[in-house]
Write a protein that binds this DNA or RNA. Structure first.
Length: 588
DNA sequence: GCCGTTTTCGGCCCGACTGTTTTCAGTCG
């Protein structure tokens, strides 16, 4: 896709224009870049289909932008960008990744010291040639030095399920402070994005009784105490900043945390603002402007009078909108849908009645079937499905037909035992079978037919050519014993891209065969949000599973549920919101 | 440079914090 390449160039042009102090144009280029990244169609295809006219129908793309895009598609270059780069031949995208370095400082560093890239910057820091520069100084040089160090250690954005438990530890510490009256996670963590850049907390500090109610100093002392506590947390390696209402730190684990403290009357507006996304905020602030109002983190204002701010619901209502769930706030159509009052009634974690993709110690899993079942009961589930790997996967000690039938008997006994004790819980018996290269399943059909359900997935020869891979998948999905297609695209967040698949075709096959698509809650997070939305639109049913290999991983369901919500999924799109009997009836 | 149920001209989201140029530019979210 050329979209990302062109977007990258537009971002760069925006930076160059910022350096030249050109007004408003940088914003226009940034918006065009964001827009290109957001659309799912390839600009090259759009151009072939409808020429410049169709390009200009894209949000933020006008005459000049379509000029640039046409030029890039034809020549592979954009002249304006080449000219800028000639004047300032530096690795801009790389250098501005250093915390505290922006385009203007980068320009000075090039002009004064000839710094073109990270390597040059490191050398200059070592020689202490930065501090004497006009506009820089000792502290700036030290910040650059530390920024470089952190950049080297950085693994980029973290998987949500890796970072949320760490964030919640800090959350609990802050929540326990007597000075803290209210606290919430904000940012991409609250929106449930699959990867997280930094962790944001929003806090209301308890008013200090010493001062009069409503006085500006009312909460100042407690606010300061919370700030002091925050920057002194264990694991804090660097304090980027600490003021009266806002602090930012870098953690030893390699990510940043931000804390913002606001008065109670602004809590809702601040939560709305701090949750983002930025694109959603810009959209909501524009609605405010259209109504002659002003929206900031302090509230929604008519002139200097605050008309909403205490809760998010209040802010949205005053803008003429229903409440929009954080997972939807990406400026991907949620505002228009909200205006029409047709937002989806999103599935919730508490709607989930069981988990069908769980492994036991019969194969490579860690815990026994009974222990997995007990953990599922503790989560309030009505059932758990044991779906161990099958024989082709030797590394996971996959089960063959004989062992599967033996496992069936074992599960039958467990269920009989529950019944005797009056425990209303059921263990379902499935397997996670392998789709072999020719599309057949590695377990005989007559055995598959004896299980409660069958999950099938691609676990080998991942790098097949598209047509061949699709034939393979199609054959498996058409198998009347295959109920669920596991981790359909094969991607692993931050590690592996999706296979060469045709998702539209998968949707059509799923629709025609009644095959359920899996939303896998582990580091796969597969399906991703956009695909969930498309599946829902096609009426294809999905299931949220954890792919647990030990009991603790059952808790990953939270992330799969968030992923489903980001894909606009409702309760009736997700089959494991059904009781066991109905769920089994909904399968092939 | 883009955009428009108040506009084809005149706006563009909004604010915190730091370091240094001592009054505000640069950076960040």
């Amino acid at each position: 896709m050329k979209n990302q390449e062109i977007a990258k160039i537009f971002y760069e042009i925006a930076r160059f224009l910022q350096i030249d102090k050109v007004a408003f144009k940088p914003y226009a280029y940034e918006r065009a870049a964001v827009s290109l990244e957001a659309i799912k169609d390839d600009v090259a295809q759009i151009y072939i289909k409808g020429g410049r006219k169709m390009l200009e129908e894209i949000e933020g793309i006008g005459k000049a932008m379509s000029d640039h895009i046409e030029e890039y598609l034809k020549t592979g270059k954009i002249k304006l960008y080449e000219e800028f780069k000639k004047k300032l031949p530096v690795q801009m995208d790389e250098l501005v990744k250093v915390e505290g370095l922006g385009p203007r400082k980068v320009k000075v560093l090039y002009q004064e010291l000839g710094i073109k890239n990270i390597k040059d910057l490191e050398k200059a820091v070592k020689k202490h040639t930065i501090a004497p520069l006009f506009g820089f100084g000792e502290k700036t040089e030290k910040n650059i030095m530390q920024g470089l160090e952190f950049l080297k250690q950085s693994k980029g954005r973290s998987l949500i399920s890796d970072i949320k438990p760490v964030a919640m530890e800090v959350y609990k510490k802050l929540e326990n402070l007597k000075e803290v009256q209210k606290i919430s996670l904000a940012g991409s963590l609250r929106r449930g994005k699959e990867t997280i850049g930094d962790v944001d907390f929003l806090v209301v500090s308890r008013p200090d009784k010493k001062y009069g109610r409503g006085s500006p100093r009312e909460a100042a002392k407690n606010t300061q105490k919370i700030m002091d506590f925050f920057v002194a947390l264990p694991g804090v390696k660097k304090i980027w900043g600490k003021g009266g209402t806002k602090a930012s730190v870098h953690m030893a684990d390699g990510f940043d945390m931000d804390l913002r403290i606001v008065p109670e009357k602004s809590y809702g507006a601040a939560l709305q603002y701090f949750t983002g996304s930025q694109a959603h905020n810009i959209a909501t602030r524009k609605i405010a402007i259209d109504k002659g109002l002003k929206l900031s983190e302090y509230g929604l204002f008519k002139g200097s009078k605050i008309i909403a701010g205490k809760t998010e619901e209040e802010v949205y209502r005053a803008l003429g909108l229903p409440y929009i769930a954080p997972e939807l706030r990406e400026d991907q159509g949620e505002i228009d849908t909200a205006l029409k009052n047709t937002l989806p009634d999103l599935v919730e974690l508490k709607d989930i009645k069981g988990d069908l993709h769980c492994h036991s110690n019969w194969n490579g899993g860690e815990n026994s079937i009974e222990v997995m079942a007990r953990s599922a009961m503790d989560l309030g589930y009505e059932y758990i499905g044991i779906s161990d790997h099958t024989k082709f996967l030797k590394i996971e000690n996959g089960l063959d037909e004989k062992k599967l039938l033996k496992q069936k008997e074992a599960i039958k006994k467990i269920n009989e035992n529950y019944k005797k004790k009056g425990i209303k819980f059921r263990v379902l018996h499935g397997c996670e079978a392998n789709i072999l290269n020719d599309g057949s399943i590695d377990i005989k059909d007559e055995v598959l037919a004896q299980l409660d359900y069958v999950i099938a997935g691609v676990h080998s020869t991942l790098k097949m050519e598209k047509g061949e891979l699709m034939e393979r998948i199609e054959k498996a999905m058409k198998n009347p014993n295959v109920d669920i297609f596991a981790h359909p695209t094969g991607r692993i967040v931050g590690q592996r891209d999706e296979y060469q698949i045709d998702f539209d075709k998968i949707l059509q096959i799923a629709k025609n065969t009644g095959t359920i698509l899996e939303i896998n809650s582990s580091s796969r997070l597969d399906l991703r949000d956009l695909y969930i939305r498309r599946a829902k639109a096609e009426g294809v049913k999905m299931i949220i599973n954890t792919d647990s290999h030990k009991k603790e991983q059952l808790l990953l369901m939270e992330y799969g549920a968030m992923q489903a919500r980001r894909g606009w999924a409702e309760k009736n799109d997700i089959i494991n919101t059904l009781p066991a009997e109905e769920l089994l009836k909904s399968l092939k």
